[in-house]
Amino acid sequence: MSSTPTQQLSDAGVSIWLDDLSRTRLDTGTLQKLIDEKNVVGVTTNPSIFHAAITAGTDYDATIAAQAAAGASVEETIFEITTTDVADACDLFAPIAAATNGVDGRVSIEVDPRLAWDTAGTIAEAKHLYAKVNKDNVHIKIPATLEGLEAITATLAEGISVNVTLIFSLERYRAVINAFQSGLEQAKENGHDLSRIHSVASFFVSRVDSEIDKRLDAIGTDEAKALKGKAGVANARLAYQVYEELFSTERWAVLAEAGALPQRPLWASTGVKDPAYPDTLYVTELVAAGVVNTMPEKTLDATFDHGVVTGDTITGTYDEANETLNALEALGVSYNDVVTLLETEGLEKFVGSWKELLADVEGALATARKAS
């Protein structure tokens, strides 16, 4: 075929989003180039991405100096920087959003991760972010903690589109879909146009393999080693089975009749952590219609360069995926233990990145105040 692997992915029904954003990407045109050449139709961000962007160079020095002169706090300064970048990215993707009726062309911004266990705080922050960015194609990103589920429902009920993040377990994914459908039911009661409310559920992939492979190495048998690198894909494939199941119910049919669009599965953490695995593993093995794959640029480049797209690689694989997870349990690798740990570690990582960002920007503000 003459088309590129990323075009083939797009043709197979996979939306490619970039898992990165920075002022440099916006100002130099490199993000536009990825849209034009590599089929990128959206962007996701997280606290780690913003920390890397803001501390990488001098792009934000003028904004920080202006915020310092205005007497802004560190939280106000970060809020200004991140929402400005996201709003500008929303403008860049606006033509794609218009062409897809808002399904793609989305840009995600996450609530302060320190609020992950605070339902009311998350709802308030989601509204604040949405009002500040003030773009139809923004997604407010909310972690799928138990406390986050109620916040997801309440935010959607306000007519605000949501990216639910940090999902690792099939049980939690079911709860996320329930929270989504509850939110739409309330939004309908509140008089919102359901066709304008969009959502994705970010199901994390590579971190599942990283943790389970570590445990398989500790077991050390040939049987254990044969299961390495299989859990992440199996778990995600079973998530797609849950998606198919819960979006074919009578409850969903009522919402769809009212104009609602399904909450799409989004494959997150798709960069391969183990160099022994193909660098496109979590892309080519997770192809199905109606999914999003958000990739770091390294994974996007690898996919564009040598990804082999063979069509749908998910439907019809559910028995095999179940066998993989059952085999892991039989070896003593506890699925529930792994997914609980990964949620905790994921949140700790984002909180850690946010605290580092606060400290770095506080230092930059102090320097700017002295200079003035």
Rank of each mutant, 00 (worst) to 15 (best):
Leu194Trp: 03
Asp337Val: 02
Met1Pro: 12
Thr82Lys: 12
Trp17Lys: 08
Thr270Gly: 06
Asp301Gln: 13
Leu347Asn: 01
Tyr335His: 04
Glu76Asp: 14
Asn178Phe: 00
Val283Tyr: 03
Leu357His: 05
Thr155Cys: 06
Tyr60Thr: 12
Val103Asp: 07
Val308Trp: 00
His192Leu: 10
Arg172Asp: 04
Leu9Met: 07
Thr367His: 04
Trp354Ile: 05
Thr155Gln: 03
Ser108Leu: 09
Gly316Val: 03
Asp59Thr: 07
Ala56Leu: 01
Leu266Trp: 02
Ala120Leu: 08
Pro95Asp: 01
Glu189Met: 11
Asp193Ser: 12
Gly290Cys: 01
Asp319Pro: 00
Thr317Pro: 01
Leu347Arg: 05
Gly159Asp: 10
Glu356Asn: 10
Glu348Asp: 15
Thr84Asp: 15
Asn137Pro: 06
Arg106Lys: 14
Thr270Ala: 08
Ile123Pro: 08
Gln8Gly: 01
Ile123Val: 15
Asn293Phe: 04
Ala68Leu: 03
Arg251His: 11
Ala218Gln: 13
Tyr173Arg: 13
Phe304Gln: 15
Val176Gly: 02
Asp213Glu: 11
Val164Gly: 06
Gln186Pro: 00
Ala218Ser: 14
Asn178Cys: 10
Leu328Gln: 06
Gly229Cys: 07
Leu246Ala: 00
Ala327Tyr: 03
Pro265Ile: 14
Glu323Lys: 15
Glu244Gly: 14
Asn293Gln: 11
Val254Leu: 07
Trp17Ile: 01
Leu129Ala: 09
Trp252Gly: 02
Thr317Asp: 02
Ser73Ile: 03
Ala366Glu: 13
Asn39Pro: 01
Leu358Glu: 15
Gly13Met: 08
Ser210Tyr: 11
Leu9Gly: 02
Ser108Gln: 05
Ala253Asn: 12
Ile160Phe: 04
Ile54Val: 09
